[in-house]
Design a protein around this nucleic acid. Sequence first.
DNA 1: CGGAGTAAAAGGCACTT
DNA 2: AAGTGACTTTTACTCCG
Length: 307
Amino acid sequence: MSQKLSASVRCPECGGSHIVEDLDIGEFVCSKCGLVIKGSMLDRGPEWRAFTPEEKQAKRRVGAPSSYSRYDKGLSTTIDVNRDAYGRPLPQKMRRQMWRLRKWHIRSKMHLSTSRNLMHAMTELERLAEKLHISSSAQEMAAIVYRKALNQDLVRGRCIAAIVAAALYAACRFTKIPRTLKEVAEASIRDKGELARCYRLLIRKLDIQMPPDDPLDYVSKIAKKAWLSGETESTALQIIREARRKRLTMGKDPSGLAAAALYIASQSNNERVTQGDLSQAADVTQVTIRNRKKELLQELELDIQNR
DNA sequence: CGGAGTAAAAGGCACTT
DNA sequence: AAGTGACTTTTACTCCG
């Protein structure tokens, strides 16, 4: 996910200047009001011109990265109560005054209910992402999805944690991070059914076109859990590609298919792994592995004893 | 024990009323 | 929104080497 700021373009809705590219699907979002702008109508270059390297350096604007998984994007100010602008201690009589000012400053930051909601949501997102070992870039995407949901009033009346989990699951699916709905649900404090409903809601209302869940993405995750070699892993990938060419993958559990392919691959590479271990690694039953395996073997006419 | 197979229950999905 | 039906997975069990 890229976040290219284009300062030369303003949001037609609210006039905000932070237009952010979103989800790598050629969609742009205003970070202020959440307005979604379709198409590539934006000038991504700088709005200034520079003729010498020095000038270029001087005009470049760089700060700490603006992060979407902070409720205030890391941009809010804080007031240091005890020191003046030069870092010297304040006289005693000003301290009380500053303290009051600071109190109201904090309160005004929070006064919008969306801020509170976001703070709550981002805390939960952080927790979930850590528990599921999800990269911060996917976490950022989940944060954007959540902000959009909030702006479109999809959260009202629903549990924040459920929408957060759904947004994170959506980000995983979109970036092909192999996490099942079940796994996300187990890390979440909400149940799987609610998560599934919220996920469908997000997909529908935010008009996200989701790539289908791909068994290829699950292969290496399962292979690592079952301690299988990279060689077996790549054999399994070939098997799945072949299976997909023959349209054997549609409507099947991607984890189960990946596990079966790995089982076949392990046997052809003379690597020993039981269906039981594999079924645990993939979180499917042995029966499913057997069924997929049987289907793969007869449809692909593979022989296990090559090599 | 690991693997193969089966019947019945349960789950998830598209589609209808 | 509940119901239906085709399809997949799970559960629980048996049999084999």
